[in-house]
């Protein structure tokens, strides 16, 4: 009897649990779904107020407009350069710093940790103008390098990486240390491979953040040939809503722009996610 009860209980639990998650997912699918539906609607139909879950008057004119008005490849190329180079550097440098801070006790560790933590509390608005001035002094205005440099490390990522390194079992490190491995070797050969889930997390966050960034491009770049995809789309899609003039951008064009902007992220996501799964095997087959 009790065994039967637990089995029923288990099935019920699994059912309720999955239903709960699917309900949450349903609300989260809505923005993407709505954007897709509107982007494939005709100009006029897309202007109907409210949430749209199915294209009204199916039409490609939203995408056609973007395609004809915007030469998309140059901004796309810029976005890829800035995002990929920026993310690789960011993850590597943050991991290095995170590894150092994960070491037990060395002179200045506490002070350096506080030094890094404080940077996370500074509102960007407070230092926006000074950062612009700094970029100017470095002669980096109007370069992609400025976009790569801004946010090249962050306290957030350092803290995360440090946290992942801390969860590596001490005996693995100890045995490597006995074999005479130095810090760089430990970092590169032992800690990084054991923190794939962590690296995947930080990579994902940074990649998405950089891909979606608009403000730093607007601030640091004047030359339209160095615009990133987000800025080019944003200028096209969100301009002209000011005062007494401005063209009307129909909603299907806006949503087509949004879909184009996030499509690469959705395509990249599964590859990053694989590392979470890989992490499971790594954890179980520790050498």
């Amino acid at each position: 009897m009790p065994r039967f009860a637990t089995r029923v209980g288990n099935t019920l639990f699994v059912f309720v649990n999955v239903a709960f998650l699917l309900l949450i997912c349903a609300t989260m699918i809505i923005p993407l779904w709505n954007a897709l539906a509107v982007s494939f609607s005709s100009n006029l139909a897309s202007m109907q107020p409210g949430i749209q879950l199915w294209p009204r008057h199916f039409s490609l004119s939203g995408y056609r407009t973007i395609w004809s008005v915007l030469a998309i490849w140059k901004p796309f190329e810029n976005s890829v350069i800035v995002t990929v180079v920026g993310t690789v550097l960011h993850v590597l440098l943050s991991a290095l710093a995170g590894y150092a801070l994960a070491q037990p006790r060395f002179p200045g560790r506490r002070a350096l940790t506080v030094f890094i933590l404080v940077t996370m509390m500074i509102p960007f608005e407070a230092i926006m103008i000074p950062v612009y001035v700094t970029m100017q002094q470095l002669g980096l205005l109007n370069t992609l390098a400025a976009l790569i440099l801004s946010g090249m490390v962050s306290g957030f990522s350092i803290l995360l990486m440090r946290n992942f390194f801390l969860s590596i079992p001490g005996d693995i490190l100890e045995s490597a240390r006995i074999d005479g491995a130095g810090h760089f070797r430990l970092f590169w050969r032992i800690c990084l491979p054991l923190s794939k889930a962590g690296l995947a997390t930080v990579t994902l966050f940074e990649f998405v953040g950089r891909w979606n960034d608009i403000l730093s491009t607007i601030l640091f770049v004047n030359d339209p040939s160095k615009y990133t995809l987000q800025v080019a789309l944003n200028a096209l899609v969100n301009s002209g809503d000011s005062m007494s003039s401005g063209e009307l951008v129909t909603n299907n064009v806006k949503m087509a722009g949004i879909v184009i902007a996030i499509l690469p992220l959705i395509l990249v996501y599964p590859f990053v996610q694989k590392y979470f799964v890989k992490g499971i095997f790594l954890g179980s087959t520790k050498e």
């Binding site: 350069i81 180079v85 690789v88 550097l89 590597l92 290095l96 002669g139 980096l140 109007n142 370069t143 992609l144 390098a145 400025a146 790569i148 440099l149 130095g182 760089f184 070797r185 970092f187 590169w188 050969r189 004047n222 030359d223 339209p224 040939s225």
Partner: peptide, 30 residues
Amino acid sequence: MPSIRRILAVLSTSALTLTLIGCDNGSSSS
């Protein structure tokens, strides 16, 4: 220490990329 060298290589290549991208500073906008 091959690993140090590898890290240094990665870092210096990235630094090089940065300076290269930073170099074409001449053209003004539009």
